[in-house]
């Protein structure tokens, strides 16, 4: 294929890492070792993943291996969300439910409506796109909902004091939290093709695929990302919002610990 990159070509592209290292030295950024380490580590990780993917998506192997890979990605994404939100107790099972729900929705639509054939080579990358892109938005939604318990406490209590049930009392603030998490992706979706060429499409074109075919795949990927973000953020927001209240409709502060990044 026209877009094949040889090992020699890969080695040549290391010149770009050399450029970055040289600029770091020139500007006294002291990032040379980190840049070299990051480039080397990324290459090793990708080669390992490529090798493992080769085994999993081999058409001669059962598709259950690809499902196992997707399940592992879902679990790992939940772990990453927990690591990035240590201030939120009990986020792990909730994130697990959210990513599982997103997987059921997105993969169910894609394979149920036969947008793609159900094979390892389609299942694994689509699940990866779904999970990978939803992580940041899920973290944002989770943090915003927890902040509600303190930042909007007076307003939520005032609504409770008017006799509103907890779900109604928190609804406008919950919607704002999910909006905050979703808007960057909506903006990205709107700008795609005009401002930047997204990864899947670029990769396909580089690999020699007809640009229009690449566009079709990219459009589906964008919709997968949008659908999965909406699902994970909604599930996490609803799940966490329930923890802001006692069963008898009182507002309780969630236990918050210091942000380790602060």
């Amino acid at each position: 294929m026209n877009g094949d990159v040889t090992w020699v070509g890969l080695a040549a592209s290391l010149a770009l890492v050399a450029v970055a290292v040289a600029l770091s030295r020139l500007m006294a950024l002291r990032l040379e070792r980190e840049m070299a380490w990051a480039a080397a580590r990324a290459l090793v990780q990708l080669v390992l993943v490529g090798w493992a993917l080769g085994l999993v998506i081999d058409p001669s192997r059962p598709v259950v291996l690809a499902w196992a890979w997707a399940a592992a990605m879902v679990a790992y994404a939940a772990v990453v969300v927990r690591r990035r939100t240590p201030e939120i107790p009990g986020i792990l099972p909730l994130a697990l439910v959210a990513f599982t729900a997103a997987a059921v929705v997105t993969l169910g639509v894609l394979f149920g409506l036969r947008v793609f054939p159900l094979e390892g080579r389609t299942l694994v990358p689509l699940a990866g796109m779904m999970v990978g892109n939803a992580m940041s938005a899920t973290v944002v939604a989770a943090r915003r909902v927890v902040e509600l318990g303190t930042d909007r406490r007076r307003e939520i209590e005032a609504r409770l004091a008017l006799g509103l049930a907890s779900r109604r009392a928190i609804r406008p603030y919950l919607a704002a939290a999910v909006r905050t998490a979703l808007i960057p992706q909506i903006e990205t979706t709107k700008a795609v093709g005009l401002v930047f060429l997204p990864g899947a499409m670029t990769g396909l074109i580089l690999a020699g695929v007809d640009p229009l075919d690449a566009v079709l795949v990219q459009a589906v990927v964008m919709y997968v990302v949008l659908g999965s973000l909406a699902t994970t953020t909604t599930v996490v927001a609803l799940g966490l919002s329930r923890r802001l209240f006692t069963p008898d409709q009182r507002l309780v502060p969630l236990t918050r610990v210091a942000d380790p990044a602060a």
Binding site: R154, E155, E157, A158, R159, L160, A161, L162, G163, L164, A165, P172, D248, Q249, R250
Partner: peptide
């Protein structure tokens, strides 16, 4: 039921807590 009790026992807080929107929107919450 907490919702019934709170409609029977109303509360005014020390600081006013207006919600987003117009005065009409605020009153319609109640």
């Amino acid at each position: 039921a907490a919702t019934d009790l709170r409609r029977r026992v109303g509360m005014a807080f020390q600081q006013p807590v207006p919600f987003a929107g117009t005065v009409r929107d605020n009153l319609r919450v109640a």
